[in-house]
Design a protein around this nucleic acid. Structure first.
Lengths: 362, 362
DNA sequence: GCCCGATTTGCACACGTGTGCATCACCGAA
DNA sequence: TTCGGTGATGCACACGTGTGCAAATCGGGC
């Protein structure tokens, strides 16, 4: 059957419409009356070939609609110019811009990216790593919220550089770029403190331990700085798999603890919390101020619009890709911590007067 | 330099940790004391090799951590088992589930997907097609809202099957799966009619002509069915590049035309319209009912939650991929029209009493 | 004992490209 | 004229895998 394709290739000197121009370097060589080596060199701008010969060859190649076959190139150069990108799920409003940043730089540098989702399922994680291995990707970027130790171990067996986003981990081939959770959390809480809140809750995420720990730590540090006590019942970690749902579930605990404000692990939780508050007739921000994290698109058009901590997601994606490129070029790289920035919108306000008289429930 | 890699390959019989198991079929052959052909056949479960020999070879391959090199396989089989996926932008809440559906089926069938975004920029579109061509993808799925004629022409030159999502077009290699815009729009408008609205606006999208035309047609048909007149000033097409912004901009025209309800081209427009209405003190749904299209995640947690037309996005993605698989298997396929379903939430209600006395502004 | 068929294996080539090395032509200098 | 040098080109092999065909082996029937 592919003998046919061959024929098509030979005929394509006449016309290369229809069948996807199966013109090879040899066809060009024949047409130009030179060897395929010379064509190869001419197309790669090698100084070894005569300038006009090269120009001539390039013109012929152009006319014949020659398009290099990266597959064949990869076989000899041992480089596929592809990177594998693993995400937990594509349906996460948080990742869009990161992926965009990665893809943008990758494309510009002649790389293509394989997108796969793991769904935090060990079986699929293994399958993804296998696929990347079989395809001989040059590097891998992991944008999964959860990275089990077995997983990283398997990843390292690939023998290619790996960049983790928002997921520090140890390992010879593991590098990372992450948002500065600590500083971001501190900015969020400080904002609430500055507004006059003294009873501030934290709605954490049970399934992203590393970053959750750092954001919680930022919350503690800022409370301490303000001279406010750390009350453990103001900190809740709902354990559903849905962020929005977890936000909803957190409301009761917060109210019982007397919170007038809450800092949430991410925007979707904040939005869930906000929805539940409205449902119960609790006004945001009058009765409860809410701050999120991430600055996903929806946070700007929910009502009230959400005060949140913006992660430079596009830049983080680009940075991760750049790190991979550097590693592939044999350079040394350092892990990267990207700055976050508070975005003040409508979901935060000073506590109501009466709450000045009241301390936390306890 | 890659001679080094070779060495590593030969040493890896001892231990394949660290360097990504550069074990080739030849290494396995040597270890098993057979020719590489036999190994190749054994691994592909060819009936041509002796059963126990095959078992033995497979065990050795397993032990040595052999992982087939798809790149090399592709070169001879003329199949890369990759598909190219073009989207306009990844940062579109509409596409997430579609991509997920595509990726899900693709992975299950041993395919990997290259993700690229065109940003509706001709230059990048060309670059994407080029990249797919160089990589010799087996097929392409286009999830771009805008598909220029020049673009499709270039795509067809790839000589591989192409499946368009939500974008019918003519061409030998062009197939499509799309949501049933007409029926969806009719359901939306009928819902408003059933609630008692007689002055219903349409907020269209200037940049997606084909689907916009169909949704507008659905709107017209349903008005006609209800015996309501088609008033051209109830139909607006803002021309910003932001959907949300376009929704905002539409409000004035709708109010001037006396609309008590509006059907929007998509959810983001609906959300923009809703935000602007709130900003102006116009209550939704009491003063203005709003219906969107798509059922993006945010539509369920904005306030009020959005009544909308749900597209079976995950299924559409899977269907598109399945179509590609069928085409690659040489089967004939028919274009597919997926049913949409109305999801009633809080953004729609009967018009207020007084509007019963009032007809459209005109 | 010989031959034929069936089963199993290996040889050799192909896929499309890159590159070390030898070859060749040409030119200037001795 | 001869020689060495330089620039341009082609030959041949490599990358890792699949496969047609020939060869080898084995078993059984005459």
């Amino acid at each position: 059957m592919h003998t046919c394709a061959n024929r098509a290739g030979e005929m394509s000197v006449a016309g290369n419409k229809g069948k996807g121009s199966r013109v090879s370097i040899k066809d060009v060589a024949r047409a130009a009356g030179v060897s395929h080596s010379t064509v190869s060199r001419a197309l790669r701008n090698s100084p070894l070939v005569n300038a006009e010969t090269a120009a001539h060859i390039r013109r012929i190649a152009e006319e014949m609609g020659y398009i290099p076959n990266i597959v064949a190139q990869s076989l000899v150069t041992q480089r596929t110019y592809t990177v594998g990108l693993v995400v937990t799920t594509i349906s996460d409003p948080f990742i869009d811009q990161i992926v965009e940043g990665i893809e943008d730089l990758a494309t510009r540098e002649g790389y293509s990216v394989f997108l796969s989702s793991s769904h935090a399922d060990p079986g699929r994680e293994i399958a993804v790593v296998e696929a990347f291995h079989r395809r001989r990707v040059d590097g891998v970027i992991v944008l999964a919220s959860r990275v089990g130790s077995m997983y990283t171990e398997r990843l390292q067996e690939l023998g290619v550089p790996i960049v983790l986003i928002n997921n520090q981990a140890d390992g010879a081939y593991l590098y990372s770029v992450s948002a500065d959770d600590l500083s971001g959390a501190r900015q969020a809480v400080r904002h609430l403190v500055d507004l006059g809140h003294t009873c501030i809750g934290y709605v954490g995420c049970h399934f992203r331990p590393p970053s959750n720990r750092r954001r919680l730590e930022g919350y503690r540090q800022e409370l301490a700085r303000a001279g406010l006590p750390y009350e453990s019942d103001l900190v809740v970690h709902p354990k559903t798999f849905s962020d929005v749902e977890n936000g909803r579930l957190a409301l009761d605990a917060l109210l019982n603890a007397g919170a007038t404000a809450a800092f949430c692990y991410n925007d979707r939780m904040a939005i869930g919390l906000m929805a539940e508050a409205r449902h119960r007739g609790i006004r945001v921000p009058e009765d409860l101020s809410i701050v999120g994290f991430d600055d996903i698109e929806a946070s700007s058009y929910v009502f009230p619009s959400l005060t949140t901590v913006k992660q430079p997601r596009f830049e983080m994606g680009m940075r991760a890709m750049q790190m991979l490129l550097d590693l592939l070029a044999g350079q040394e790289v350092d892990d990267d911590l990207m700055p976050c920035e508070l975005v003040v919108r409508e979901s935060t306000a000073p506590p109501r007067k009466e709450s000045l008289w009241q301390t936390c429930a306890k």
